[in-house]
Each structure stands twice: as structure tokens, then as C-alpha cells.
Nucleic acid binder design. Structure first.
Lengths: 139, 139
DNA sequence: ATAGCTGCAAATGCTTTGCAAGGCC
DNA sequence: GGCCTTGCAAAGCATTTGCAGCTAT
């Protein structure tokens, strides 16, 4: 059962990578599994690298960075900016917002329907709204 | 007239520094004038340092960083996080939100009344909402 | 075979820090 | 004078890059 689940997501992962034009290499597959097998997650490069090491996947930190950015460009991840010292990547690419726990440097999703932003200003002149990010800082 | 204005803000600046428990040193006074004399501004350390140089104020980059943080702690500035590579400081400490122009790495204020956030989720367990930051990314 | 990946280590860029010299009260 | 501030240069960190070797197709 667990094995079946693993195989299913393994194939999914490869399919997703191919669909994004990314070669399904050993490292990308392993990182994608860590990222996407467990529901919505928020990771930093450092954290994901540590997880890979724990899972006996040998991958360099540079490759983790490269992979996270490639996944983000491919639309598999979303980058969240809450802290000027660290990059966070969110496996939930849908519309939603975030709690940021300043004490623990941790992010948590807020479902889109729990925050309603009414009366948005329109985008200035020749610009276009790319995203509306709401971060609730908690102390 | 312009001179009077300058003197007035000069005194204001010294008073504000004293009120915040900061010694009004030459560098702090000069930086405070650059920051607070021209209405609401968004600066990075690098930018402020360049402005100081242009204005013939000799101040080291390290001092600019230290000063920006001291001002922030004193409540004279607010730190805005929009880019994981750079710290932005906003002279407008009141409630409001931001446009971020990704092409030019520039911030612009959105008055508080132009964005209405209804139905905020409540803060989890033992936490407290410190701030609700809305950033509209423009491309 | 070959174009694309990966690993390592070095480089980069922003920010902080240590310490001696200088300036405000 | 005493203590806080400053400047400089060096250190610190997260992230990126260059390049030789490896791998998926």
C-alpha cells in the first residue's frame, strides 16, 4: 500500500517534470518527491538540503538552489518573500496567503477564502498586477 | 524662506532624535534630513549612502546600515520586505500598503483606504498579529 | 553522441561586526 | 572625561556561478 503510493507519486513526479520541460534526473525526482508527496509545504533551500541528506539523497546545496528556481520558473513552486535573509518556496501555487511566525521563522498557509481583499487599487500606467500577497506577521 | 524651512526641519530632526534616545550626531542628523525632509520615501541602505555622498555628507555604509536599524527600532522608520535580496525602509510608519515594481525594484505607497481587507483570520493559539502587510507585485 | 545536469569550490552581494579613533554631553 | 558613535576593513551568510565530469535520451 505504502509502496503503491510511492510508485504512483514517483510516476507523477516524472510526468510533472517532463511536462515542465525538465529532465527527470535523480536529484530532481528526489527533491520533487520530498516537496510534493506530503501536501503543502514551505521550505528553504537549506531545509530541503538537510531533508535530502537525512533521506540519504546526495545532492549539493547548489543543485538544491538551482532546482528550486527551475521548479519555480516551471510553475511547480511559488516563491514567498517574508524575510529579507531567506527565500521560502511554497508547494501550494494556488491563490492563498500566509501567516509568518517571527519567533520560529515559520510560514503557514491561510486559505484564500479566509482573507477577502476588497477594493484593490488599479495598477499604475503601463503595469500589470502579477500577484497580491498578504502576509500576517505574528509575534 | 527655504532657509527657514531648512532650519525648522533641522531642529525637528534633532528633537526627534533626542525624543528617541538617539544622540544627534552629524551623521544621524544628515541622514534623518535626507529621509524625512521630502515626504514619504522608500530607501535601501545603498541608495541612502549614495545620496549622502552626492550631498557631500561623508558617512560609511556601515553607519548607514546601523542608523537605518536604529531609526527602525525607534519607530521612525518601518522595514518593508518585498525582495529577499534587499532591505527597504519606509519613512511612512502609518498603516498602508505597497506596490512593488519588479522591473525597477521600486516601492510605492498605497494609502490604507485603497485596500480593504475584510474577514481576517484570527491569530493562532498563543500568537498576536503584529502587522498585516499587503504587497501588490507589478510586472 | 550530445545536450543538459550536477558537484564542488570559488565568487558575489548584502549586511554585520570588531576595534581603534573621534565626537557629543 | 566618559561613553556613545563612527569608520574601516574584515567577517558572515545566503545565494550564484564557472567549469570539469557525469547522465538521460
Amino acid at each position: 500500500m505504502l509502496q503503491m503510493e510511492t510508485n504512483r507519486t514517483y510516476s507523477n513526479v516524472i510526468a510533472r517534470l517532463r511536462a515542465s520541460g525538465l529532465r527527470p534526473t535523480r536529484q530532481r525526482i528526489a527533491l520533487a518527491k520530498l516537496l510534493f508527496d506530503d501536501g503543502d509545504r514551505h521550505v528553504t533551500a537549506e531545509l530541503l538540503h538537510a531533508e535530502a541528506k537525512t533521506a540519504n539523497i546526495r545532492v549539493s546545496l547548489a543543485t538544491v538552489y538551482n532546482t528550486l528556481h527551475q521548479f519555480t520558473e516551471a510553475g511547480l513552486l511559488r516563491e514567498i518573500v517574508v524575510d529579507s535573509q531567506r527565500c521560502y518556496f511554497d508547494t501550494n501555487t494556488g491563490e492563498h496567503h500566509h501567516f509568518f511566525f517571527e519567533k520560529s521563522n515559520r510560514l503557514e498557509d491561510i486559505p484564500a477564502d479566509e482573507i477577502v481583499v476588497t477594493s484593490l487599487p488599479s495598477a499604475p500606467d503601463g503595469t500589470e498586477i502579477k500577484s497580491v500577497d498578504v502576509v500576517i506577521h505574528l509575534s
